[in-house]
Nucleic acid binder design. Structure first.
Lengths: 163, 163
DNA sequence: GTTTAGTTGACTAAAACGTTCGGGTATAGG
DNA sequence: CCTATACCCGAACGTTTTAGTCAACTAAAC
């Protein structure tokens, strides 16, 4: 499980689709405009998301992308692994013939850590993030109006509960 | 918090130092040979680890690196952030002036997720990983030749044991 | 049949990754 | 002293990944 901006873009775009998908498919052009992500880059990402079964596409005018599953059935881990193919941190490529005195510790080590990060991110669904985002929007509306970007750090909203 | 092989190499190397640091400093040449990581790359990584206060260096013959803190006081999160400088997934660079209808959700979103991943990795210490590694070595010895010494240590490792 | 919008592939500049090289400086041992 | 060891530093390199662009295509709505 790699963790880069690529996966984050994908999650951001998926949240956008989840939040704007009420009235039919969401076009990538709209996502691109709202999230300031290059349209062609989004096309690449959504190609993978579609092939991974996370979104459905509708072609032609009025088309776009829909979530293939309910927002509470789509985890962050799924999205990230869909667009961010995993890398191998072990030199042995998963085999155990890498060392003489002891087998390389890298393999089990990162398999274990990976498992934990993965299961954590599997517990965070789109529904969680959408809810958090809407909650924040409410707060913003409430305290908006000529409020300059003062140094008030945003309140840390818990993303999920226990895994 | 980025998660690449770079940080994993650093953690692997730190585990190596923790496990072989009993009799004085550990040379990077030894780590390089054991972990199959390029010596010069290790030098770069340990330069950052040293500047971050995670290791102490001893120059000259017989020198090498020691852990600056006890293994149970060094978390994986510290190691990774020491060598893997964070990236910014927000186009606004942390400012909030990025959008018209709503502020870009990327910022708080990933701040929250980052917090969770970070706090998780902060709970995993070098001591945990060393213990897990030694435990695995014991099992290997048991499967190899003869009876292992004494009772098996309690597996209170927060890292899962299987793939 | 034109327009919309997904689909695909090739291509590119920039960044990051991992490595190699070539030089330094401090120190232990002879 | 000298020399070997091993940390220290920075530059350069080739590769991969990012992020984006461009072009051509297909399906569907009007």
């Amino acid at each position: 499980m790699r963790l880069t901006t690529k996966g984050r873009f994908a999650v951001t775009a998926m949240i956008d689709v989840a939040m704007h998908g009420g009235g039919g498919p969401v076009t990538l052009a709209a996502v691109s405009a709202r999230q300031r992500i290059s349209l062609s880059y989004l096309e690449q990402l959504f190609g993978k998301l579609r092939r991974s079964g996370l979104v459905d596409s509708v072609r032609g005018p009025g088309g776009g992308y829909n979530l293939a599953k309910a927002p509470d059935q789509v985890s962050v881990a799924e999205i990230i692994t869909a667009v961010d193919e995993p890398i191998d941190a072990t030199q042995c490529g998963g085999r155990e013939n890498c060392h003489d005195d002891r087998r390389c510790m890298t393999h089990d080590l990162w398999a274990g850590l990976n498992d934990h990060i993965f299961s954590f991110l599997s517990g965070v669904t789109l529904a969680h993030l959408v809810q958090q985002q809407q909650q924040k929007a409410d707060v913003a509306v409430m305290k908006d109006h000529r409020q300059p970007p003062g140094g008030s750090t945003a309140p840390k909203v818990p993303v999920s509960e226990t895994v």
